[in-house]
Every structure is written in C-alpha cells, then in structure tokens.
Design a protein around this nucleic acid. Sequence first.
DNA 1: TTATATTTAACTGTATACAGTATTTAGTTA
DNA 2: TAACTAAATACTGTATACAGTTAAATATAA
Lengths: 220, 220
Amino acid sequence: MQNVKKIDPRPNISEDIANTLRNMIFDGYFSAGERINEVHLSTELGVSRTPLREALTTLAAEEALYHSPRRGFFVSELSREEFEDIYPMRAILDPAALRLSGRPSRESFSKLERINEKMKGTRDFKTRASLDDEWHLELIRDCNNRVLIGQIKLFMNRIRRYGLAFHQDRQVVEMSTTEHQEIIDALKKDDLESACEWLRRNLTSDKTPILNWLEGRKTK
Amino acid sequence: MQNVKKIDPRPNISEDIANTLRNMIFDGYFSAGERINEVHLSTELGVSRTPLREALTTLAAEEALYHSPRRGFFVSELSREEFEDIYPMRAILDPAALRLSGRPSRESFSKLERINEKMKGTRDFKTRASLDDEWHLELIRDCNNRVLIGQIKLFMNRIRRYGLAFHQDRQVVEMSTTEHQEIIDALKKDDLESACEWLRRNLTSDKTPILNWLEGRKTK
DNA sequence: TTATATTTAACTGTATACAGTATTTAGTTA
DNA sequence: TAACTAAATACTGTATACAGTTAAATATAA
C-alpha cells in the first residue's frame, strides 16, 4: 500500500482571510474601484499585514482585485468591457460540461425541479442568485472534469458582482425559471443538443439589461 | 476628459519572482512533486522570503504549485487525473475563440502558413511547442474576448508541462502540421464550422500517447 | 536488527521594523 | 482665487525576527 500522508485540513490565516475577502468582494462590501488600505484592513480583520497581503495576492490572481506597484491593491472596476468578456464564458463552459455529464439521474431531475420551484417563489435577489447557481451546478453534477467545474464556479463569482450591482439599482427582473424548465424537459426527452442550446440561451438572457445599465451609468 | 492615471510599468520583486518561477516550473527546472524550500530558494534567487512567498502564492492560485499548511509549497504532480481534466479544456475554448474571430485576415493567413512551415522543419521539441502556441494564438488573433484568450494561454502553459515531460522520455512525435493546414484550408473556403471541427481534432490528437505514457509510468 | 519514543534541527506562518515611494497638506507666488 | 512648489504624512515593498509546528536524527526498547 502506498504511504499516503494524512493531510492536515486546518487552514491558516492567509487562506482564511482570502476566503473572507472573496466573500466581502462578491457580496459588495467594497465598492468597485476602491483602494485597499492594508494597515486599516489588517487591524480591522485582526491580523498582520503579511497574511493579508498573501490573501490579496490570491484575490488579485483571481482578478477580483488588481495590483498597482507601489500604490497597492484595488477592487476591480465593473466595466462594460470586462462584462462583455466574462459573460459569454459560461455560455461556452456550461454546455460543454452538460455534454460531459449527459442525462441527469432520477434524483437529479427531482432536485432540479425542486430548486427551480423554490426560485419561482423567491424575491430576494441574493438568495435567488445562489439558487440559480445551485441549479446550474446540479445540472452538471455528473461532469467528472473538476477543472471545468472549477472554471464555471470562478465565472459564477465574477459575474455575480455585476448582477448584484445591477439589481441594487433596478427592480428584480424575472429570472429564467422557464428556461430552466425547458432544459429539464429536453433532457427528459434525451435530447442533449437542444438542452445545450437552451442552456446557452439561458446563460445569455441576462446580458442585455445589464449591458444597458452599464452603458447608462456614465453618471459616475 | 477623464483624469486617467499614468500607470507605472515597473514591476516589483514579487511579480518578477513570480514570472521567474513560472518559467522555471513550465520549463521543468523543478521536478514534479518537489517540495520548495523557501529559505534555500530565496537565497538562491537573492531575495527575502516575503516577496518569494507572495510569488509562490500567485503560482499556487494558478495551480502550478499547491500549498499544504505548515508543510509548505510543492510543485504540482503530473497525474493522469489532472491531464484528463486540463487536456480537453483547449478543445472547448479554442473553437469558441475561433468562432468569435471569424475568418483571418490576409496577413494572418500568410503568417499562419509561415509558422506552420517553420514547424515542419523544427526537430527540437521546445521550439516546436512554442511555434505551435504561436500558431494557435495567431489563428484566434481577431477574437476580441481577452478573458477567453487569457484562459487559453493559461491552459497552454499547464498542458505544456505534460508534453515536455513526455517528450523527454520518448521520441519526438510528429506534431499535427497537416491538421493546421486543414484548418487553414477550411477557413479559406469560409467554412468556419469544419475549421472548428479540425481545430478540436488537432487539440485532441496528442492525448492518447501522453495518456499511455502517464499510465505506464508506475515505476516511480 | 527493527520498531518505537525522544530529542534536535529545520522550516513555515505570522508579526514587526524600516526604507523608499506616493499622496496629501501647507505654503508661496501670480 | 488659482496654480504651483515644498514639506509632511501615509502607505507600500521588502527584510528580518520569533514562535510554533513538522520532519529528521538520535536514543531506547523489543
């Protein structure tokens, strides 16, 4: 038998703080473009600058922050340019994952319908958005490519910031629960390709309103 | 006019070191699974541990390294599992980028053929591999989605480690210059879809030999 | 000798100090 | 007042110190 080292799951401060910061950013705790003061933030979080900086470095690698030498870390701006780049990514990645997953299991089907029902009855944007994420991850549960799933999760986060900022200004728009149902129906008929097509459509439907909002937001 | 801050392009040690390390890893300077000794490496590179650790954190976010709390940083192993996950990514991403690019310009066409010719005459694996990367980036030059291009570059690097390790053991295998030509020909006929199909095929053709090699390498 | 316990050394994780660089504030001139 | 300059302050980048943990070496028992 191979001598597999037991790995210690205890995280360390750097990684803890990275998770904390990630949530703070995606939940809109910082405003876009904001400069991060390392001294203030470190005392606020009760840690020294070293692990904080390592966390900031991690977040910069994920492009949630950017780094300007000798000026520090900044929260990434929400821009039309970035949005137009990251938004189509899921329409590329998710259908590929669905193709690898194939038809969901019986349990997955009922779970998908349960989540979709819950979405219909939810008005709060944040919970609605996480239900949407949950639904999409359930849809591709059988995809065994962990890297692909990881990428999808990454772009879920990056795109959420836009949805959040948008829905703070505007009213909640009807999120595509009917499209979800179309995907489920197609899969039940074993029609993977039209399921992929509906999925692609579902992942592009939000684009226009947010794009318009980004355009009309030159007031800043 | 908006007050656009001139950005200072001078990098800092952390970022310098990150680039250095990235090249060291992708070029096979470290062996897979190797543990990184921060003290030794920092003196070797002539910097203190702090910027080195920030660089290591960056590389860990890119999954070139992994981090085990209180044990340190390790060079990621080459595993069949990871290979099977990352290898298909380019077959997903590249055709999507080609669809966004559309038909290449006249200059691109000649550049593509020039690079491909050069590839045919090159026996050294490393230069051949970078010519291949160059060719593929030229193919999708008109894709205006920078994020998508960035992802492709990321996976180029991650996959290269496998190709390199493989070609150190085995003989150089004929790289798919004929497939490249098929792609060019299809595009000249304005047949984007079959170009995408050839591209997908090109990006899956190397898989089997490397996979076999990974399988048969249980000697370790 | 092999296996287990104990001590020692090495290494990582975090805090802190310090130097050099931006940024802000106050002061000066038109 | 507005524009410009100079001094003061704040902040980042890097080095270093130290504590706690892991890994290695040595000693002890089977």
